[in-house]
Design a protein around this nucleic acid. Structure first.
Lengths: 171, 171
DNA sequence: CCGGATTACCTGTCCGAACAGTAAAAGGTC
DNA sequence: GACCTTTTACTGTTCGGACAGGTAATCCGG
């Protein structure tokens, strides 16, 4: 152990060379810890690739929905992405300011507005699709299809358990 | 397909009931997509549990390092958690303001300061440890040890590939 | 000793995410 | 029609994360 207070007056810790990310917390919750690190690196790579095409993480998901499903209201995007209305308001505004999205008033419902991908955004589409392929390649590497299927099954099992647990949290 | 522009004047999309999170993007990059959803739910549950003990996601990692390794400089915490110096500055300041952390000037190096967990924070420690157990329980559910070991291996394989890919990005 | 690099910390900015609250519009009931 | 609830979008705030800079202290080569 050798922790507690005032036994060590010098600032630089003795040994403890920076090895892994969370050596201390690794003891409790190894799977949670692994999920955390995988998600962290995965997100970092995605952000790196997105930066090249001028998007921030999360914005590409909105664009993909608009590209594939056509114009949507904000609330539709929120539900499709399981996101937040406040976040969507700002994300759409930034995408609009960047010229990737256009808003038009909704005739049926004066509260809502139609969010539409602009023609200028179509140039992004191929880049984003290639970006996702790159990300998937980095994730699966040269594993076989069977291994990929097994990994996907593992992740989906974890997801199901987490979703159930999240539902239990609300109750 | 039936996408493109101006073919549909009504705002509410016809069918498209909100089923999964990303039905559109699921085609390309199923593993990446699964990682994204698992991480999302995992983080949401962690945030929910942390909120009960008065911490924000990320702060508990700093506290765990201080509890387990004793006083550290900010740069040590940054390296241990593979974090950012700017983020650490603000996180430590908020933890200090919350009374969970104390800073004392470092004698050896006038640039650095000693970050130390306060006695008041010790009450949090047990709660945080229990919280991590809850999170791990929610993640693994009632799976066998063998299944957990296999899942951990799968995650570590993915992590290794992602880490390698991230290293390739820098070059 | 001196001067240039490096280190440790801080600030400002911008982003997504989460939560709380507001206002306007729409839907339903009496 | 009047009344109440729900829906939709917005704003404000706070947090972590990332990036670009800026300062003071430290270190190292000459």
């Amino acid at each position: 152990m050798a922790e507690s207070t005032s036994s060590n007056d010098s600032c630089p810790p003795a040994g403890t060379s920076g090895a892994a990310a969370l050596p201390a917390a690794a003891g409790g919750g190894p799977i949670s810890h692994a999920i955390f690190r995988v998600a962290r690196t995965h997100r970092m790579i995605a952000g790196h690739l997105l930066r090249r095409v001028g998007l921030h993480p999360g914005q590409e998901l909105v664009m993909m929905q608009l590209w594939e499903l056509g114009p949507q209201r904000q609330i539709d995007l929120v539900r499709l992405l399981d996101s937040d209305a406040a976040t969507m308001t700002r994300t759409v505004r930034r995408l609009e300011h960047a010229g990737f999205v256009r808003r038009s008033p909704c005739a049926d419902d004066k509260r809502a507005s139609r969010i539409e991908a602009t023609a200028a955004s179509q140039a992004l589409r191929k880049e984003v699709e290639q970006l996702w392929r790159q990300l998937e390649d980095a994730t699966v590497g040269d594993t076989t299809d069977d291994e990929q299927a097994a990994a996907l099954r593992t992740l989906e099992d974890i997801e199901r358990r987490l979703t159930d647990a999240a539902a239990r949290l609300g109750s």
